[in-house]
Amino acid sequence: MIRFLLGRLLQAVPTMIIVSVAIFFLMRLIPGDPAAVMLGDLATSEQVEALRREMGLSGSLPTQYVTWLSHILAGDFGKSITSGDPVLPLMLDRFAVSATIVVAAVLLATLIAVPAGMFAAWRQGSLADYGLVAASTLLLSIPSFWLGLMILLVFGMWLEWFPVIGYVSLHDDFRQGLMFIFMPALTLILVEIGPIVRMARASTIEVSRLEYITHARAKGLSEAEVMWRHAFRNAFAPTWTLIGLILGGLLGGIAVTETVFTIPGLGRLLVEAIYARDYPVVQGCILFISVIYVVVNLIVDMLYPLFDPKIAQ
């Protein structure tokens, strides 16, 4: 068991290294002197020279990479060109906002979609199954940004139930915060219900064809007991992996939803930095989100033996 966990942990190391190398070199692909590019058009040659030294741009590429990485590992992601603030605290601030929405949405979507998918599988071929599959295929086909705009239009503008612009942290004012978080969270929940229902349904159907389900029935267990005690845990394993991927994927695509609802999250920070050619922030955000994605999937994998003890061997 410990061997499995350690092994999985070690596997993430080369991935992280290659991710950092990829980001480092892609940033170097931007035409022109990175220091000049990073400082923008208005920078003086002294400023550029100072930054070059600070960024360790004097040595060969590998030495430059090592210097760069050591800065990053020390928490120094550089300073934003537009605001002059250090990048890391900026990202952490914004990340809290994005994480609240994403985690809340994935949690609720899972709570709704997994039972729904299992129910559909249990009643395979019934009208309820047909309806659930049709609904999830439909939801799967609606892009989040359009769904968001529609929700904004209906709940925010026509019904005026929720505030259309702005954001208040749950931490500062819980009730107010909920008002602001409602529409974006609803959007993401609806978007993610589709794939989770389908996965939960497919894996439950696959599991329920296996002999140990028949064996459980042959013991005299009721249908509910068979489903809950024998089908659920085994059917949940692949869904669990999907939920991890969705959680990370949502962070990667959060920019879109945050743009729709003008929420000051990490995704919005990234997109605005791209518009403003604020490269230190762009680089920081990409690296940050990728690391979070890797870590989320790592945690998901490490918890996987809970659903499938065989994997830890």
């Binding site: 064996h215 845990r233 003890p309």
Partner: peptide, 8 residues
């Protein structure tokens, strides 16, 4: 191989 529940 498949008639016992693998996760119990």
């Amino acid at each position: 191989m498949v008639s016992l529940n693998p996760s119990m």
